[in-house]
């Protein structure tokens, strides 16, 4: 283990300055991912700049139905927030479907967004990995890839974004608030935070050095819409998603779809907003056939590998089940 320095920043400017002056510094939040990677030798920051005291620790509900979630709000707090549970139940469910009680009590909003892939090669420094060591190769393609991605991959990397919360946020049209090194604030759609691997899999987000995530903003959920998050995994708790779906659905009186938003987890290097499927479904009934057709279009560009090809049909079936359940009264579920 390498020695490293620990600094606790008291305000954003100080945090940014600390990171700016030390090129190998990293922000530390709950540490549940970063510290693990340090132990494994995957990450080796010279300085950890603790951002948990910067005042981004509140969930602010707005009168228009939107909400601003602070970057350092604990996952457990966010999941249990009464306003979130009422207005954005899919977000609450997504968080509770992830990790364990202990981890959620330490993990934060921003840290959760930026958690790294669970690809076994990425985590094993004795083996090659393009993401960890650009140019060294991607053993997952010919090796262990059952958990990895089928969409948005490249010949250089097939890693999955493993998280749950961000999948729900993607379906909720979240904006990520970022404070630049120069103090400038900007906001970008959550989907645009992540970049696909292409031939630079070590670049995972659009964030620049010193960019601090300050919070996540959700616009009001569409009036009259129902929402759900469902995760399929290898055991009933404490496992990353094989496939997950966050769905927001509003139907007309005749049952046809007025508005639908779908985001998939466990299948791509980022939370995957299924916009093609969404637009195919508008005006239609959420029947298995229609879902099949819509998801067929969505997954047309998929690049499955031998051991994860099952995720394609699974994603389709899961979307079908979630939409079906959302159109049935709660007590029938």
């Amino acid at each position: 283990m390498r020695p490293f320095a620990y600094e606790r920043a008291e305000d954003p400017a100080e945090a940014a300055a600390l990171v700016a002056e030390r090129p190998d510094a990293a922000f530390l939040a709950g540490g549940t991912n970063l510290v693990d990677l340090m132990k494994l030798g995957v990450a080796g920051p010279g300085t950890l700049v603790d951002v948990r005291r910067l005042g981004y620790d509140r969930v602010e509900h707005r009168d228009d139905g939107g909400v601003l979630i602070g970057a350092t709000v604990k996952n457990s707090e966010l999941a249990g927030d009464p306003g979130i549970r009422r207005r954005f139940p899919a977000l609450s469910r997504a968080i509770l479907a992830g990790a364990s009680g202990q981890l959620r009590s330490a993990a934060t909003t921003a840290g959760n967004l930026l958690q790294r892939t669970r690809c076994v090669y990425f985590q094993d420094v004795t083996k090659p990995c393009n993401k960890r060591e650009p140019g060294s190769g991607c053993p997952a393609i010919g090796g262990s890839h059952r958990d990895l991605a089928v969409l948005g991959t490249s010949d250089h990397c097939v890693a999955t974004y493993p998280g749950d919360m961000a999948v729900a946020l993607a379906a909720l049209d979240a904006l990520v608030h970022v404070r630049g090194l120069d103090g400038e604030a900007r906001a970008l759609p959550l989907e645009d935070l992540y970049v696909l691997p292409g031939d630079t899999p070590h670049r995972e987000t659009v964030l620049e050095r010193g960019d601090l995530i300050t919070g996540v903003e959700l616009p009001a959920a569409p009036a009259g819409a129902a929402m759900h998050y469902r995760k399929v995994r290898d055991r009933w708790s404490y496992a990353f998603a094989l496939v997950s779906v966050a769905a927001v659905l509003r139907t007309a009186g005749d049952g046809t779809i007025d508005e639908v938003r779908l985001a998939l987890g466990g299948v791509a290097p980022r939370p995957w907003r299924a916009r093609t499927a969404e637009s195919e479904l508008i005006g239609k009934l959420p029947t298995p056939e229609n879902v099949q057709a819509a998801m067929g279009a969505e997954l047309a560009g998929a690049r499955p590998l031998p051991d994860n090809a099952f995720k394609l049909d699974l994603a389709t079936d899961l979307v079908g089940a979630v939409l079906r359940d959302l159109t049935e009264p709660e007590e029938d579920r």
Partner: peptide, 22 residues
Amino acid sequence: DPEFGDFANHDLASYHVASNAD
């Protein structure tokens, strides 16, 4: 992991045993 000759998964996050919920 045939290429390397070891086990690809080697921690308790990726080697699953029953959790309480199971």
